[in-house]
């Protein structure tokens, strides 16, 4: 049986993050907690971020969802850990460009595992799965700014 089409979407790295999610769990009290759901499909995530002196010192998530949304959350927490908040937001913008199939900045960031999600851009119905955790982070920093 051929899985060619599917392999484009479900790359091995993605399946690895799905199977062995990094940073799944909860941070101690005082962390920034953001709940986000995808109302069209029922996926939910709670992202927890610890920010010290403008830097994301730790990131974890809990939630329910499909392989793409959970793998993306795993990759996302992995990649923003240690970044300055504005750098993390920039990375989120790059990820958004990648999902929309646009040219994206590959020079200034080490995209690492995230790049494996590039194939999602060819499955429009699944883009929102991949961006859920990133949107949660953006929402968290926006609300913190407004507070």
């Amino acid at each position: 049986m051929s899985f060619n089409n599917l392999d484009q979407l479900y790359r091995q790295v993605i399946m690895d993050h799905y199977k062995n999610p990094r940073n799944k769990g909860e941070l101690e009290e005082g962390a920034l907690k953001i709940n986000m759901n995808n109302p069209t499909c029922g996926d939910t995530i709670q992202l927890q971020l610890k920010v010290d002196d403008g830097k994301i010192s730790d990131a974890k998530f809990i939630g329910e969802g499909c392989s793409i949304s959970l793998a993306s959350a795993s990759m996302m927490t992995q990649s923003v850990k240690g970044l300055e908040v504005d750098q993390a937001l920039k990375l989120s913008g790059i990820f958004s460009d990648m999902m929309q199939g646009k040219e994206y900045d590959e020079e200034n960031f080490d995209l690492g595992d995230i790049e494996a999600l590039q194939g999602v851009s060819k499955f429009p119905a699944r883009i929102k799965c991949a961006t859920l955790s990133w949107k949660a982070m953006e929402k968290g920093f926006k609300e913190q700014d407004e507070a």
Binding site: L6, L9, D43, G65, C66, S67, I68, A125, R126, C129
Partner: peptide
């Protein structure tokens, strides 16, 4: 298999 993944596989 999560239902979204089921639907994507079936769609292909």
């Amino acid at each position: 298999v999560h239902p979204h993944d089921v639907a994507t596989v079936l769609d292909t």
